[in-house]
Design a protein around this nucleic acid. Structure first.
Lengths: 318, 318
DNA sequence: TTGAAAGCGCTAACAA
DNA sequence: TTGTTAGCGCTTTCAA
């Protein structure tokens, strides 16, 4: 900038003003400076500007990644959340700084705000990041982190919707498939159990480690071989549900006549599955957008509140 | 840092050294300084450090996003590419700065390197970013951008593999389903056509706008109603292929006896589909990791070359 | 409409 | 082992 100033025969500050479209500079001067900048391939030093302005136009998105084991955050669906976040922030002139918890990468600290996703949104993580004293929004179940602004989908309601559907179909031996160690699944199961409990029904719970179709397939196969009786399955994810359906069909059970199946997420394949899968739909993209809008509000000093996204049961064939 | 120095009774630089684990500082001094920093909730100003060190420990990932229409980059599979990138960069102590082309967000300019993804990797985009003079790696088909380091999967080989399979099955009326405006699909079609051409067979090409199962379903339904004859379908994506299979089955055609179908991508559902879908597998995750490793190499001044990831045909039931 | 001075918070180079 | 000096490149006062 000093060089440009010398070449243009003006002062540094005039160059700065010209390049940032300040009204404090003469039209002609501005054009001349800009032309010179272009010719010389000048590129603004963003770090210097950030230092001076005390902001980076950046929001850190922090996801969990245990080194090897659980890469849940990199599964396709949570990533769509990131798509929503990015879309919203980008159009507001912010960039997303993507980091994983525990990384030594420093850039996240320079951000103007922070979004916590995935397992990273646990209590301990929240406290850890609290010390950074920056606007923070958390994805997950509100109430767990009363002190923080939370956006999440209504997993409890989704579980209840599945239960109500089974009740309407007069199913009395429902089964829950999934790992309630994940807070989302715990909520889904809670909503499911509560709604059933009000009619004196208690679901069986089959704890599964993975979310994959194979896990669902194997689990149901084992149940069938052990002659466990059930007439309805509520799966913690669509992939699990699809695996379950495959196992049922292979074993000669009719879906939904013998066993009704409801999944969770409404992935694009759910509608194309044969038979088309009934499932609880949640809009990840929108969740991402909402998270982004909340941090932006906080960054600009406006108030913001926790919010829960609706989950709706989509009844298809199963 | 000046405050900490005063409190600890040392100089600023000693604080700096203590906090950055420099060997130039006495063990005791270091501990004392760190303790004081902790007590006072000190947080390093990363912008200042970036300015001073002339680096940001950041890699910009630039994706395409036409405002409303084509959000292809936010589809699940390209996002996995991002997962791979992020994983690799994070473990090297870098953060990912996610921006879309055309965004006014400044943070990307401060990055130490750049990865261009999606439609953004077209010629014009590449030239636009060339002016930033930073290490750059592009996702796509090598050869298109000779001048730049490119990582991509071998779409041409994938198309050829599908063709070879059909030839081995003695199919003589193959059909290609997909939109060759996308460079990847163009390559897949090229490989497919070339391999067939060597046996005197020319595939029919059905250009489809979308990648969705519905698009595949509708397209095949129309073909069947027009009594177009074909005995093999190579679809540009698994979702398309699944839609096609559904249409075939509904119309009473047997898969693969009457019509063999091969998809592309090997999405997790492909193996669970009924019937399990044959498809060309490409490893997005690994592609992302490779992209990341190449930029890191460039950033550290090491040489790097373009590279093509293998695509392999996975033969299942269709 | 332009400019001079000051300083954002950090670390490399050099000196003690 | 510690400290002094200087300066990274920018923009906000304040003055002309």
């Amino acid at each position: 900038m000093a060089d440009l100033a010398r070449i243009a025969g003006v002062s540094k500050i005039t160059v700065s003003r010209a390049l940032s479209d300040s009204p404090l500079v003469n039209e002609k001067t501005r054009e001349r400076v800009r032309e010179i900048a272009r010719q010389h391939g000048y590129k603004l030093n963003v770090s210097a500007r950030n230092l001076r302005l005390r902001r980076s136009q950046t929001v850190a998105v922090i996801v969990e990644m245990k080194p090897s084991a659980d890469r849940a955050m990199w599964h396709p669906y949570p990533l769509i959340l990131l798509g929503g976040i990015s879309q919203e922030l980008t159009s507001a002139g912010y960039s997303v700084v993507l980091t994983t918890r525990g990384s030594k990468a420093p850039a996240a600290q320079a951000a103007d705000g922070m979004i916590l996703l995935g397992q990273g949104a646990r209590e301990d993580a929240v406290h850890q990041f609290d010390r950074w004293h920056m606007p923070m929004v958390v994805w997950g179940a509100p109430g767990e982190n009363e002190a923080h602004i939370t956006v999440g989908s209504d997993n409890r309601r989704g579980g209840a919707a599945a239960a109500e559907r089974f009740l309407a179909m007069r199913r009395h031996r429902p089964l829950f498939l999934g790992n309630p160690d994940y807070p989302e699944l715990r909520e889904r199961l809670a909503g499911f159990s509560d709604a059933l409990g009000r009619h004196g029904i208690e679901p069986q719970v089959l704890v599964l480690g993975a979310f994959s179709p194979d896990a669902g397939y194997e689990a149901v196969r084992k149940l069938l071989s052990k002659r466990v009786r059930f007439d309805a399955i509520f799966a913690g994810s669509d992939l699990l549900a699809m695996g379950a359906v495959r196992a049922l069909i292979e074993a000669g059970r009719r879906v939904p006549e013998d066993v009704s199946v409801i999944g969770y997420d409404d992935v694009p394949m759910a509608a194309q599955f044969i038979p088309p899968l009934s499932t609880v739909s949640q809009n990840w993209q929108e969740g991402g957008e909402l998270l982004a809008r909340k941090v932006l509000a906080l960054i600009e000093g406006q108030p913001a509140q926790s919010e829960m996204l609706p989950s709706t049961l989509v009844v298809r064939a199963t």
